[in-house]
Design a protein around this nucleic acid. Structure first.
Lengths: 138, 138
DNA sequence: TAACTCCTGCGAACTACTCGCAATTAGGTA
DNA sequence: TACCTAATTGCGAGTAGTTCGCAGGAGTTA
């Protein structure tokens, strides 16, 4: 549990709320601010939603967490070290599968070469139809 | 102006509001519901925002318009026949550039081959940093 | 024209998020 | 250890964007 160092190293104060938010994000994998708040409230019932939002923002600023848009409008937060995959969101069944970032390597390179655009493929989900929903089965 | 046929063919009633919403989407290229409302109000000032939202949803259900997520949370609407490009959204300056869908062809194929995932690259923006913001200039 | 529905306008409600302020608390210092 | 200062928290209000219910009005068919 080197959280204390991580947070202090980034120039942040070490508050119970902040630690709880960070560990909630880590344990949840991906989670909306509300889900993070719910998780944190299991051990710290009084925590305020504003505090969760502010800590997510703060933790994102120092690079410990990141957010991704999975479509519904709300952001989904991840621990920074876990964000090594891209998200395949199915428009039919709503599932979100993971795929390794390498499948996008050519795409990222093409965008870089042709447009000078440096792509972060993990930030937005990739939308489409998953295998299960594409294959008509009865 | 075959709008009447289009709408009627889809089983929709032909109301001035509905026609105006559709033509606003077509003339604007990409637009948020609020921008569509503003456009429509140029010729039909009394139109209600709810009506715009409902018509966008209705038109989307019958396939005449589509929406894309450009990131800020709000959806952006397009005429269905215009959606032949993907969007490169810059996280630094916030600009949204267009790119032909072919640059994503390999990526789409890889996803299809490896995961059976049928990708709609136009639905979500592609996030990253544009050339202007990548190149440090003074 | 009459009747039947769909559609519209309106206002309230809702969701997701942000902000200001006063009280609290972490971290550094003496 | 006691104290000081600034960061942080909780709370409530505020905001933006979107949805919903309802009653009146309009498009469509016979």
């Amino acid at each position: 549990m080197a959280d204390q160092h991580e947070l202090r190293d980034k120039g942040l104060r070490l508050t119970p709320q902040r630690e709880l938010v960070l560990s909630a994000v880590r344990s949840l994998g991906h989670a909306t601010p509300e889900e993070v708040a719910a998780k944190v409230r299991e051990t710290h019932p009084g925590i305020n939603l504003s505090t969760v939002y502010r800590n997510l923002e703060t933790l994102e600023n120092v690079g410990l967490v990141l957010h991704t848009h999975l479509g519904h409008g709300g952001a989904t937060y991840h621990a920074a070290e876990e964000l090594t995959h891209l998200h395949l969101v199915c428009g039919v069944c709503g599932s979100a599968a993971d795929a390794p970032i390498d499948v996008a390597a050519q795409f990222v390179n093409a965008l870089a070469d042709e447009f000078g655009f440096k792509t972060d493929v993990t930030h937005f989900a990739v939308y489409g139809t998953c295998a299960a929903c594409t294959t008509p089965e009865d």
